[in-house]
């Protein structure tokens, strides 16, 4: 007994170091696994309000670009609204504003953005109080941004598409060729579309959009263009380099998308899986 106590006293610094290191490593490993609720993240009340106030200061520096972007988007939306008004001539157009729309869109401000790490996260200034739940998709004016990971009352954390855990369903516009969109961690302007079949028609410059199989994002949201394509896995599949439309290093405003049909689709999907087994 005496020896044990002597041992503890002699090595108390080492033991403290090892135990604290163990805690830190557990936090680290948790942060590297997708969708595990971690203790240490940037959506806490104190952290969130600090991030908000920092954003309040730095927002002024790029107000002009942000306004330009929003103005451009307004113009595009106005054009789209005019198109619907034209094709539905004579019909009632109030349906556009009813409650039963397939996708609801929530505007949000980005109060923290990372792109230089291997696993990047973004923090938004809206949360559960505004109707945000985990697994909703997040887009910007130019393309997709990520998926909601954790949300509390006032803030939400988004898993950026620049994260090793993310794999999104995407397809080549105008065809039904699908693949998984992943990030290899090199630069924030390029992602890769993998698992594309060899026989698919892949042309440089073609547009990549979100796929119909995705339950998180609406179909046909723009992602990027094909920059390069190589055959991998003994020439059986393409690995396509996609140049993103979205400048992930410069995002100010984001839109969170809530799909009306996510529940029914998930129910159907699990049914077919169970049937196959």
């Amino acid at each position: 007994m005496q020896q044990i106590i002597n041992f503890l006293i002699k090595y108390r610094n080492l033991l403290l170091y090892l135990s604290l290191l163990l805690i830190a490593l557990v936090f680290t490993i948790q942060s590297h696994s997708y969708h595990r609720n971690s203790f240490v993240h940037s959506t806490g009340h104190i952290t969130g309000s600090f991030l908000s106030s920092r954003n309040g200061v730095y927002d002024y520096l790029n107000l002009k670009e942000e306004n330009d972007k929003l103005r451009k988007e307004n113009a595009i939306l106005r054009m789209k609204a005019l198109v619907t008004a034209d094709t539905l001539l004579g019909d009632e157009t109030t349906f556009l504003f009813s409650n039963d729309v397939p996708y609801r869109v929530f505007p949000a401000r980005v109060i923290k953005n990372d792109y230089s790490k291997r696993d990047n996260f973004i923090t938004l200034d809206i949360g559960v109080d505004q109707g945000i739940e985990p697994d909703m998709g997040v887009i910007t004016t130019d393309g997709i941004l990520g998926i909601i990971d954790i949300s509390n009352n006032r803030f939400s954390r988004v898993i950026s598409i620049l994260n090793s855990e993310v794999s999104l369903n995407a397809q080549i516009k105008g065809s039904n060729v699908i693949g998984s969109l992943t990030w290899d961690g090199n630069e924030p302007y390029t992602m890769s579309l993998v698992d594309v079949p060899r026989l698919a028609k892949v042309t440089k410059g073609d547009t990549i959009v979100t796929g119909r199989q995705s339950t998180t994002f609406p179909p046909d949201i723009l992602i990027g263009t094909i920059k390069d394509a190589v055959l991998v896995e003994n020439g059986s599949r393409y690995k396509i380099d996609v140049a993103l439309f979205n400048d992930m290093t410069d995002v100010g405003t984001a839109y969170v998308i809530k799909s009306r049909d996510i529940k029914p689709i998930q129910v159907i999907d699990t049914l077919t899986n169970a049937g196959n087994e």
Partner: peptide
């Protein structure tokens, strides 16, 4: 000293979403 350093790193971790890397 060890506990303070750990807490310092953990605080930075919460802001940068790095789990426990700064703490370690």
């Amino acid at each position: 000293f060890l506990i303070l350093s750990f807490l310092l790193g953990l605080t930075v971790d919460t802001f940068q979403d790095t789990g426990g890397a700064h703490a370690a």
